[in-house]
Every structure is written in C-alpha cells, then in structure tokens.
C-alpha cells in the first residue's frame, strides 16, 4: 500500500467542538488511523509537522487579519483543504458579528482592551482561500465527515446533498414538527446530517446552511399559514446563516426594517 497520507487539523474562530467529534469517533478512530498519518491535531496530540499536508482539515471561520495570513500559509502547505464545521463552511454563529458595526461590537466584547484586537467581518474559509471539500454542521455529523475524508483521500468529489433536511427526516419517519405546531428549519436547510437533531427530538436550526435554491416566497406563504412571523424565522436563521445574502425573503425583511 502507498504511504499513509499526512493529515492535520487546524482551528480558527470556533469552539473546536467539531474536532471533538473526531476525538469521539471511538473504535472508528482506530480504523481511521490505519489509513492516515495524523501529523497535527492539538486536541489529541502535541506533535507538530513542518512538511506538506496531504489533507488539511480546517475548523473555524476567518475573523482577523492574523487568521487570513495563517490560513493562507496552511493553504500553501496543503494539497487538499477541507472546510470543517459550520464556522468554516458558512461562517456559522460567528456570522452574527456581521450584523453589527465592527468597532462597536469589538468594544462590546473586549471593553477597554478593544484596541489590542484587530477584527474583520466573519468569512467562511472558502471566501479567503480555495477549498476542495466541505463538511457542514454544528457540530459535523461523524458519518458524513468520514465520507468526505474518504473522498478526499481517494481524490474523488463529495457532493453535499442539495436537498432539504426533510428528505432524510422522512427517511427516518419522524413526525413533522410543523404538524406539531413547531417551527423547524428543515425545509430550507441542506441535508447530509441524517436529520440528526429531529431524530433526537430537537428542531433543525439550519446549521448546515440553506439549500442552493430555496423557495423563499413559498416558504413565506407556509409561515403565514402556520402563523409564524418572518422576523422570528429570520432571527432563527441568523444564528447560523448570517453570512448568507438573502434573496426574496431577505428583501422583504429589509423593506420591513426600513419602514
């Protein structure tokens, strides 16, 4: 067999919870370690590596000039780069910052020490350097991560499902939250997580980002029928999707805000 590929994990603005998903793989982790040579992963080891990474797995979003410089360096040293977790793939919760004036929010967070911190609008990794693979989710769904990693190691594409979470939710025969009078972001959020949250009694928070072409106008009509306010929904969406430029519904929202 060919030499085991060098794999490294890195984190930017995030909670490192997605990497914890790897550390928690259990026996699968041992199997995985037979196929790769793990050279950097600060959650589980203290060693460093100064060569070329075959696969760099990057968690977190890019939020400071230092982040920009560092991700560029990692990119230069990596043959393949995987954006890993919502913060890295869509900006995630860090995107909330973008709704505020940067100076203002910096003072809010750091108080008098704000002057020591440089900050930039939150960006997902692919808006700063090229990214080959995406593992969405907050946290990532372990089976999907393994699928993506296998594709990366084999050099074949991984297609993030561009269908609603409802698809997998129906596969799992869950009772729809809308039928129970509860708002869920499943209908506009892209699948791939096997409706993990709903299977466990929680709603979908939209952590994987939206499907590429959601029917926003149609969804507005659904919200109207169920008596859910647009503002409520957009706030809920903003939790993970604030980095996203809204189309139809966003315009309606902006108009409403303007009045």
């Amino acid at each position: 067999m060919m030499k085991a590929p060098k794999v490294a994990f890195f984190d930017f603005t995030c909670c490192e919870g997605c990497q914890l998903q790897v550390a928690n793989l259990g026996e699968l982790l041992l199997e995985l370690l037979d196929s790769i040579d793990l050279v950097e992963f600060r959650e589980t080891m203290s060693e460093r590596w100064d060569g070329v990474y075959d696969v760099a797995i990057v968690e977190g979003s890019i939020t400071t000039p230092h982040d920009v410089a560092r991700i560029r360096k990692i990119r230069e040293r990596s043959k393949t780069l995987i954006a890993y977790g919502s913060c890295a793939t869509i900006g995630g919760v860090n995107g909330m910052k973008n709704a505020f004036d940067l100076e203002e929010i910096k003072r809010y967070v750091y108080g008098e020490s704000a002057k020591f911190f440089e900050t930039l609008p939150t960006k997902p990794v692919h808006e700063v350097v090229p990214v080959e693979y995406f593992v969405h989710g907050c946290p990532v769904y372990q089976p999907e991560f393994l699928e993506v990693l296998k594709c990366a190691l084999l050099g074949i594409p991984y297609h993030v499902p561009d269908v609603a979470v409802c698809v997998e939710c129906k596969f799992n025969e869950n009772v729809c939250f809308y039928e129970r009078g509860i708002t869920c972001l499943g209908p506009i959020t892209r699948a791939g997580c096997n409706s993990w949250c709903i299977n466990n009694g929680n709603i979908c928070y939209g952590c994987r980002g939206m499907v590429s072409n959601p029917n926003e106008k149609g969804f507005l009509e659904v919200l109207r029928q169920y008596g859910i306010s647009l503002e409520f929904l957009l706030r809920r969406m903003d939790m993970y999707n604030a980095c996203r430029i809204l189309k139809g519904a966003g315009m309606v929202y902006e108009e409403k805000r303007a009045h």
Partner: peptide, 13 residues
C-alpha cells in the same frame, strides 16, 4: 410550483 418547497415529502411518503 410557486408554493412547493421541494422538500420531497410527497414522493418519499
């Protein structure tokens, strides 16, 4: 078509 969310519920069930 204007109302459909393409969630595929109808075909899955």
């Amino acid at each position: 078509g204007n109302r459909c969310l393409s969630c595929a519920n109808c075909t899955n069930v």
